[in-house]
């Protein structure tokens, strides 16, 4: 017992060390840097909120920050809705289930980089859908969202949903399969229409799974740097920029570690602020 406990601790200690130093340590260090005069290299002179003031005065940050919410909300809602619908379809029509499940899960096995490049080609006006449909004989057909300032961010949402929906589907499908067969039979005897059963009975039962999905999707939103880089490069201009890309660009290309740190801290704070009420409600419910 003691020996195995010690062994377990030994095996776990590198992980714990990495977590503490790299995650929490770096987070604290980043937060600290954001309150200093750092620019090209770390400078530990305390400078109050100056970095933040400068950050919010930067138009590119404003766009990136807003985009995070547009992208985040639409991706979470979109992937949940699409994943759930797919799961319900597969659950209702059992034939070909294995095939569909594999097809839907396939995107997830690709990195965001590949996803981004693939969708960049598909949506590119000169070689993708627009070009294809024009060649079919509709010369006025236009679909160039990826090249439009105010639309480009939605193409990112589109690719993100495509990428994540399979995972949501797989999780939801497992949940749907777990619903007691007798519950369905009881509702049939009572004459409750199928859609009411889903809305009123089955989805509330899957609530814990929805929470899991929201967490997974939120993580995908926050770390979606590669998708932007591969698909739009943040463009046109910086119309489809996201905070993740902003932070990386400022740390490495622009070599402004102070601004990057401030942006990272705002990002972290926003994620907390956005998710805290949700988890508060959910966890309190669970506790009851």
């Amino acid at each position: 017992m003691r020996i195995s406990g010690l062994a377990a601790r030994l095996v776990l200690s590198p992980t714990v060390l990495v977590t503490v130093v790299c995650f929490y340590g770096c987070a604290v260090w980043t937060a600290y840097i954001s309150f200093t005069k750092s620019s090209f290299i770390p400078n530990y002179t305390f400078n109050g909120l100056a970095q933040y003031e400068r950050l919010f005065a930067t138009p590119r940050w404003g766009v990136a920050y807003t985009n995070m919410f547009i992208f985040g909300v639409l991706l979470v809602v979109g992937a949940l809705a699409v994943g759930l619908l797919l799961a319900i379809m597969i659950d209702r029509n059992v034939r070909g289930e294995g095939f569909f499940r594999t097809v839907m899960l396939y995107p997830l096995s690709m990195s965001f980089i590949v996803t981004g490049l693939a969708w960049q080609w598909v949506l590119s006006p000169s070689i993708g859908v627009q070009h294809f449909v024009r060649d079919l004989g509709f010369p006025n057909f236009t679909f160039d969202w990826i090249a439009q300032q105010d639309r480009a961010i939605y193409t990112l949402v589109f690719a993100g949903v495509w990428h994540q929906a399979g995972l949501i589907m797989a999780i939801m499908l497992a949940g749907l399969r777990g619903v007691d067969r007798d519950i369905w039979r009881a509702t049939k005897v009572e004459g409750i229409p199928t859609w009411r059963v889903y809305l009123g009975i089955v989805l509330p039962m899957l609530r814990p799974l929805v929470v899991t999905c929201v967490v997974l999707l939120s993580v995908a939103v926050v770390k979606s740097y590669d998708l932007v880089v591969a698909m739009t490069g943040g463009g046109p201009g910086f119309a489809s920029d996201l905070p993740g890309k902003f932070v990386v660009d400022f740390s490495f290309e622009r070599a402004n570690i102070g601004q990057a740190s401030a942006a990272a801290v705002v990002m972290l704070g926003s994620v907390f602020a956005a998710l805290a009420p949700y988890f508060y409600v959910e966890l309190r419910k669970r506790g009851q």
Partner: peptide, 28 residues
């Protein structure tokens, strides 16, 4: 089934787990 004028009770009870007793009984 719903047009047959029957009511049924199942071995596993088949209650709707997220609903109160009241709603379980009145949902239909």
């Amino acid at each position: 089934p719903s047009a047959r004028g029957i009511a049924m009770v199942f071995q596993s009870y088949a209650l709707y787990p997220t609903m109160t007793v009241r709603n379980n009984m009145t949902f239909g």
